[in-house]
């Protein structure tokens, strides 16, 4: 089984493949026909409203619940098939709102999970250090803050050097500093060839950090691709903010008059221009011809949040 997983040199080969996956609970279609392929070595984001089916899909990818129809393979092996143990030894999982055992210390927690994963308990201490919990190794989890529990949960997922990480809302409860160091760890893991699937509610947080993502609504994948792919698919307008002196407002207006521009709004010291993506370069060229009257120019691309609402509304 280990050998059937794509090797590190196969970065970009499909590693996790979902085919026609459905999960129905009576009349409720929690997941309703999902096809996905997550490539080896990528950081893949899964976003959607609460109840969109992300967690259900996650649990099916982990083999925790069987799909009503369709199948999910990791490295070619069915996640619920005979090879499930080998598949799971390559996977680390951090559940949403991870719950660990209050009566164990941080170190004992990792010893327990290391034994279950068939990993040497000697890995526990270095893994705690990696998530910045070495100082709390001998304290009981009962005394841990929310953020520390989350980091301990992440440490548990990292045990055994998994090839694949499933992280469900991993930054819940972390402070901004811890979020930065969390993503730094993910980047490092990515450079080591680890494939990561992540969900997050905080779209601004993941938009610059994932390689590709999928947007789920009502149990279906509405769109997938890079953030830029999705922006183009949803075709939301761009905003230019053009800083010019008040007396030059009209010059800007006339320079853009022959272009397909949706709106021009005059503000105190700048003009806001809204246009379609395909007009972007033409607008920039037209503004460049204004001979230095433009003092500053910023382009605001639609954020992942805009894109998300563009798809889900």
């Amino acid at each position: 089984m280990e050998s059937s997983l794509p090797s590190l040199n196969d970065a970009g080969a499909p590693l996790i493949v979902a085919h026609g996956v459905r999960k129905h609970y009576g009349n409720i279609h929690a997941v309703d026909g999902v096809d996905l392929d997550i490539r080896s070595g990528e950081l893949f984001g899964l976003i959607g409203h609460n109840g969109a089916g992300k967690s259900t899909l996650f649990k099916m990818m982990l083999g925790l619940i069987p799909p009503t129809a369709g199948d999910i393979r990791i490295g070619g092996a069915l996640v619920t098939g005979r090879d499930f143990r080998a598949v799971r030894r390559t996977v680390g999982y951090l559940p949403e709102n991870v719950v660990l055992y209050d009566n164990l210390t941080g170190l004992e927690t990792l010893w327990f999970f290391a034994r279950l994963k068939g990993v040497s308990p000697a890995q526990a201490a270095p893994t705690l250090e990696r998530v910045g919990l070495a100082h709390a190794a001998k304290r009981r989890v009962r005394e841990y803050s929310k953020g520390m529990r989350q980091r301990l949960g992440f440490a548990q997922a990292l045990l055994g050097k998994p090839r694949i990480l499933f992280l469900d809302e991993p930054t819940t409860g972390l402070d901004p500093e811890a979020i930065r160091s969390f993503y730094a760890t993910l980047r490092q893991l990515r450079s080591e060839g680890v494939t990561t699937v992540i969900t997050s509610h905080i779209l601004a947080e993941i938009q610059e950090r994932v390689d590709r993502l999928a947007i789920m609504t009502a149990g279906k994948v509405q769109a997938r691709g890079t953030v830029q792919d999705l922006r183009e698919q949803v075709d939301l307008p761009l905003w230019f903010s053009v800083r010019v002196a008040k007396e030059d407002f009209e010059a800007v207006r006339s320079a853009l008059s022959h272009l397909q521009v949706d709106a021009i709004e005059a503000h105190d010291d700048h003009v806001k221009v809204r246009c379609r993506r395909e007009a972007k370069m033409a607008v920039i060229e037209a503004l460049a011809r204004l001979d230095g009257r433009v003092r500053d120019l910023t382009v605001r691309e639609p954020s992942l949040e805009d894109v998300f609402f563009g798809f889900s509304d």
């Binding site: 083999g63 925790l64 143990r85 799971r88 030894r89 991870v98 719950v99 279950l116 994963k117």
Partner: peptide
């Protein structure tokens, strides 16, 4: 109920 079952079941067990 505590929410620790999923994590246990995600192990090779």
């Amino acid at each position: 109920e505590r929410g620790s079952l999923d994590l246990l079941l995600s192990m090779p067990i």
